[in-house]
């Protein structure tokens, strides 16, 4: 094992895949000469040159579409968005073009492309720069959606995403790029669509993903001191969701709390709650609870941020509610 930052894990994944396959290239704003807005692609221009590490103008719709066309014609683009908030401008190419190409062409053209970048809240950036897109893109058949929470998962999943023959939405976080953690030495892949049990526990299952899972871990530590053992399932992939991993855990704990960084309506937590009531109804000893962002646009002031995001107290309360404890 070795210790690396999240951004280094992503860079290793991209660089290894670019060494392995000359059809893989990286394009996006500031990825080359500036070495990445968040330094994810630092040094890649030096190694791969301007043909394969390409600075684009600020034109998300345009370069996303160029990526889609290149993927239809045999290349395997990695399209970096500075953040997924800006990729709203590119949604037509992700949702209407990439996700539908294989079906609309009757199986003749496919889009092996990875769209990646920072997702979710990242401090005091206010409403337009703070959104999470798991539920938006998970809604769309034809896409795969990945949200890693650790450097090790990020590397293994990004490598799988680059090798995947379907279009992949890969959601990172500006707040996680500096996270340091151990990753395996040498090459490894993590399969898309497989959840990971990040913490074992017999009392309550917490389902979460992405950087908010850290808050779930902190809450689990607090609860452990009170003798409540949480099992934390990290979905890692949001489309397809590893439903069996969730159901199996709930068969053991009989209780479920979903922790999600984004809003409550039509969310991943709604989806999990539906699935659990449908496929683990007889195992539940309490309603499924969820802790999400407030049902409001994200705001600037620190006090408003504290109010908006899931925190340890709320998660502790939700977990205890499933145990009928105060």
């Amino acid at each position: 094992m070795k210790t690396v930052q999240f951004r280094e894990a992503l860079r290793e994944a991209m660089s290894e895949e670019m060494r392995r396959d000359k059809n893989v290239f990286l394009m996006g704003e500031e990825v080359a000469e500036y070495n990445g807005a968040y330094k994810v692609s630092q040094g890649m221009l030096d190694e791969f040159g301007p043909k394969r590490v390409i600075d684009t103008p600020i034109a998300e719709l345009g370069f996303a579409g160029i990526g889609v066309g290149a993927s239809m014609n045999g290349l395997r683009p990695i399209v970096e968005f500075m953040t997924w908030n800006f990729a709203i401008l590119a949604a037509d190419q992700i949702i209407n073009s990439a996700a539908k190409m294989l079906q609309m062409s009757g199986g003749q053209y496919h889009c092996p492309i990875v769209f990646r970048g920072g997702n979710g809240t990242a401090g005091q950036l206010a409403a337009t720069h703070s959104q999470s897109f798991e539920a938006f893109y998970a809604h769309v058949p034809g896409l795969k959606v990945i949200t890693p929470s650790t450097p090790a998962d990020a590397k293994g999943l990004l490598k799988s995403a680059i090798r995947d023959n379907d279009p992949v939405v890969f959601l990172e976080s500006e707040k996680m790029y500096g996270d340091k953690d151990e990753i395996p030495e040498g090459e490894y892949l993590i399969p898309i669509g497989v959840a990971d049990t990040k913490r074992k526990g017999a009392d309550v299952t917490i389902v979460s993903f992405g950087k908010i899972i850290k808050v779930a871990h902190a809450a689990a530590d607090v609860l452990a001191k009170e003798g409540i053992e949480c099992e934390i399932i990290d979905l890692r992939t949001i489309r397809p969701i590893d439903y069996p991993a969730v159901v199996e855990s709930i068969k053991k704990t009989n209780r479920c709390v979903v922790v999600e960084e984004s809003w409550p309506l039509a969310s991943i937590s709604s989806e999990i709650a539906y699935h659990v009531q449908r496929y683990a109804f007889d195992y539940l000893d309490a309603p499924v609870m969820r802790v999400t962002q407030t049902d409001t646009p994200f705001a600037f002031s620190p006090t408003l941020i504290d109010e908006a995001l899931p925190n340890v107290d709320r998660i502790v309360k939700a977990v205890k509610a499933t145990l009928y404890r105060n």
Binding site: A64, G65, V68, G69, A70, L75, S97, Y109
Partner: peptide
Amino acid sequence: FDKEKNFMGGHGIVGAQIPMGAGVAFAE
């Protein structure tokens, strides 16, 4: 679509084929 004849669609969203076509050219 007809891949054999290099006909890459047939696209329903007005203008969406413009960046895609440039992307096909990017690959060439």
